[in-house]
């Protein structure tokens, strides 16, 4: 074999080697893709089951809250009204009996209202702005602090799952504010910026050191819950300067 023949063989074998290498590469890629696909499917199933678990927890929490509220209403409001109705209906005076009947009508209305709140159908029918408005009104009526709601008209609606999570997260944020911040004003803003919907919960309370707060599980839960609906939770606070919470969701 002369040197030029050698070179020819080198060229031919190199070409065949490169071709073989590419075939192996492509086949390997297909196999790895299959493996990763299976892993990814497993991960997606896990995320899905976590999402469902979170939703179930939230539904349970809301139902627990509702039941406590119904219990309080039965005891403080309906119980009182029934006692009054009984008292007036037992009276011999016709005007008192008429008043007793009025009370009965009021009780019927109250019971109807309570029965509606026992299942979660109200979540579907209520708009988020409405719910926030009701919550702020409740806070205001306790005269604990002043409240303010700012919402743009085009804020849009949410599917039930997302709304449930948002309702629970907002409730939790407001509870925390009332419990720890001692604010004079709680302000909620519903905005839209660059295709992202933002819910800002701002208070002028005593604020806190966010580095210390991150150790707690409450904040972690809120973050995790927002992530299950594809959103983001962010918080900024400084001692003496209040707290600002932002809930972000893609439009």
């Amino acid at each position: 074999m002369n040197p030029t023949e050698d070179q020819i063989y080198v060229i031919i074998f190199s070409t065949l080697f490169l071709g073989g290498l590419m075939s192996t590469f492509v086949v390997a890629m297909v196999f790895i893709h299959r493996q990763r696909q299976a892993q990814n499917r497993q991960k997606m199933d896990q995320i899905k089951s976590e999402h469902e678990k979170t939703l179930l927890n939230i539904e349970n929490e809301i139902q627990q809250d509702t039941l406590s509220q119904v219990g309080r209403e039965l005891h403080d409001n309906i119980g009182q009204l029934l006692s009054l109705a009984k008292l007036y209906l037992n009276s011999a005076k016709p005007e008192k009996q008429a008043e007793g009947k009025e009370y009965l009508n009021q009780i019927i209305q109250e019971v109807r209202g309570l029965s509606k709140s026992l299942n979660l159908d109200w979540v579907e029918s209520i708009r988020l702005e409405e719910f926030i408005g009701q919550q702020l009104e409740k806070i205001k009526s306790t005269e604990h602090c002043d409240t303010k709601l700012e919402a743009i008209e085009s804020f849009g609606s949410f599917p039930k799952d997302q709304k449930l999570v948002l309702i629970r997260v907002i409730q939790e944020c407001l509870n925390n504010t009332l419990k720890h911040a001692n604010p004079n004003l709680i302000e909620i803003k519903l905005l839209k910026e660059k295709g992202i919907r933002k819910i800002q919960i701002i208070d002028d309370g005593k604020g806190f050191d966010t580095r210390e707060a991150s150790n707690g599980s409450g904040m972690f839960n809120l973050k995790k819950r927002m992530e299950t609906i594809g959103g983001k939770f962010s918080l900024s606070s400084e001692i003496g300067k209040g707290t600002r919470i932002e809930l972000l969701l893609p439009d």
Partner: peptide, 30 residues
């Protein structure tokens, strides 16, 4: 994730890429 949700053997981009890879590797040395 978008690619992981597909079957590459039914993706034309995969076949185009594979043939391109073969063309360039088989003609490289020559």
């Amino acid at each position: 994730e978008k690619y992981l949700a597909t079957n590459p053997l039914r993706l034309l981009s995969f076949w185009m890429m594979t043939f391109m890879l073969f063309t360039y590797s088989l003609t490289y040395i020559a």
